[in-house]
C-alpha cells in the first residue's frame, strides 16, 4: 500500500517528461561514474592527434581511440564531455541549493517580518532583477576574480531574486488563509508559523523554482566559463570547452556542437522536469493522487 502510494505520487507521464528524466538520470550517472566510463584522462594530450574527427567521419584519419574526436591540443573530447558533466552538474546543483536556501530565508523574512523588512528585501531584489542576469554575473566575477567558485556565487546571486519573489508571494498567499490565523490564535510565534504552517504548504512552487534554478545556474556558469570568467583551463567545463573551440567553428564544428548539445539537453531536461514538478506538487492533485 505504502509503495503503491509512493509510486502514484511520483508517477511521471511518459513522453517528453520521460525523456527529460532519462537525460537527467544519464547525466547524474555520468557525474558519479565519469572516472570509470571515460576512455581517457580528460587532461591528457595525445601527441599528433590534434582535432581528429569523430566516428561520423569516413576519412582515413579517424582514430577509433577517440570516438568523438580530439580537440586542438589533442585531448579526447568524449572524456572531456563526461568529466564536464561533473563540473556543470555540480555547479548547477550548488547554484540551485544556495539560491533556494537564501531565497527561502529572504522571502520568509519579507513576507512575515513587517513592512520595513519587506520593503528593504523587495527593493533589493528589484535592483538585482533590473540588471540582466549575465551582466550582473560578469560584474560579480570581475570583482571577485575568475574561478569556478566565483562563477557559482555570481550565478547564485542572479538566481536569488526570482526564488525570493516566489517564496514571498506564496507565503503571503498562505498567510491570508484562516489556518494561519488559527495558529496565531493558538499562540504560535513567527518562526513556528513560517516553518510549520507556511513553508510546508509552499513546497511545490519552491521546488519548481529550485528545479528551474538548477538549469539556469548551470547555463549561467557555462556562459561565464565561455567568457573565460568561470572554470579555468584546462578544466573540462562545458562552457570553457565551448570557449576553447570558438576558433574552430568553421573547420571543426563538432568541437562547439558537442558541448553545446550537452548544455542544451541538460537545461531542456531541467525545464521539462520543472513543469512536471509543478503539476505534481499542486497540493490538491498531489494529495488526491497520493490517497
Amino acid at each position: 500500500m505504502k509503495g503503491k502510494r509512493a509510486f502514484a505520487a511520483f508517477r511521471i507521464s511518459f513522453g517528453s517528461a520521460g525523456a527529460a528524466i532519462a537525460v537527467l538520470v544519464a547525466a547524474t550517472l555520468t557525474v558519479l561514474a565519469a572516472d570509470f566510463i571515460s576512455p581517457h584522462d580528460p587532461l591528457q594530450t595525445f601527441e599528433g592527434a590534434y582535432r581528429l574527427p569523430g566516428f561520423w567521419s569516413s576519412e582515413a584519419h579517424y582514430d577509433p581511440r577517440f570516438v568523438l574526436g580530439t580537440d586542438d591540443v589533442g585531448r579526447d573530447v568524449l572524456s572531456r564531455l563526461l568529466h564536464g558533466a561533473r563540473w556543470s552538474m555540480l555547479a548547477g546543483l550548488a547554484v540551485a541549493v544556495l539560491a533556494t536556501a537564501l531565497g527561502v530565508i529572504l522571502g520568509s523574512f519579507a513576507a512575515w517580518w513587517g513592512r520595513s523588512v519587506d520593503a528593504l528585501i523587495s527593493r533589493a531584489m528589484d535592483v538585482l532583477m533590473a540588471l540582466p542576469s549575465i551582466l550582473l554575473a560578469i560584474v560579480v566575477v570581475t570583482i571577485l576574480g575568475p574561478s569556478l567558485l566565483n562563477a557559482i556565487l555570481a550565478a547564485t546571486l542572479t538566481a536569488i531574486p526570482g526564488i525570493t519573489r516566489v517564496v514571498r508571494a506564496q507565503l503571503m498567499l498562505e498567510m491570508s488563509k484562516p489556518y494561519v490565523a488559527a495558529a496565531r490564535i493558538a499562540g504560535a510565534g513567527g518562526f513556528r508559523i513560517v516553518l510549520r504552517e507556511l513553508l510546508p504548504n509552499c513546497g511545490g512552487p519552491i521546488l519548481v523554482q529550485a528545479t528551474l534554478g538548477f538549469g539556469d545556474g548551470l547555463l549561467n556558469v557555462a556562459a561565464l566559463g565561455f567568457l573565460g570568467l568561470g572554470a579555468r583551463p584546462p578544466a573540462p567545463e562545458w562552457g570553457a570547452m565551448l570557449a576553447d573551440a570558438r576558433g574552430f567553428v568553421e573547420s571543426d564544428p563538432a568541437l562547439v556542437t558537442l558541448p553545446g548539445l550537452c548544455i542544451f539537453l541538460v537545461i531542456w531536461a531541467f525545464n521539462i522536469l520543472g513543469d512536471e514538478v509543478r503539476d505534481h506538487c499542486d497540493p490538491k492533485t498531489h494529495l488526491r493522487e497520493a490517497r
Binding site: K177, P178, Y179, A181, A182, A183, E197, P200, N201, L287
Partner: peptide, 8 residues
C-alpha cells in the same frame, strides 16, 4: 472549515 485547517 477547509481553509481553516492545515492542508497537510
Amino acid at each position: 472549515s477547509l481553509a481553516s485547517l492545515h492542508p497537510r
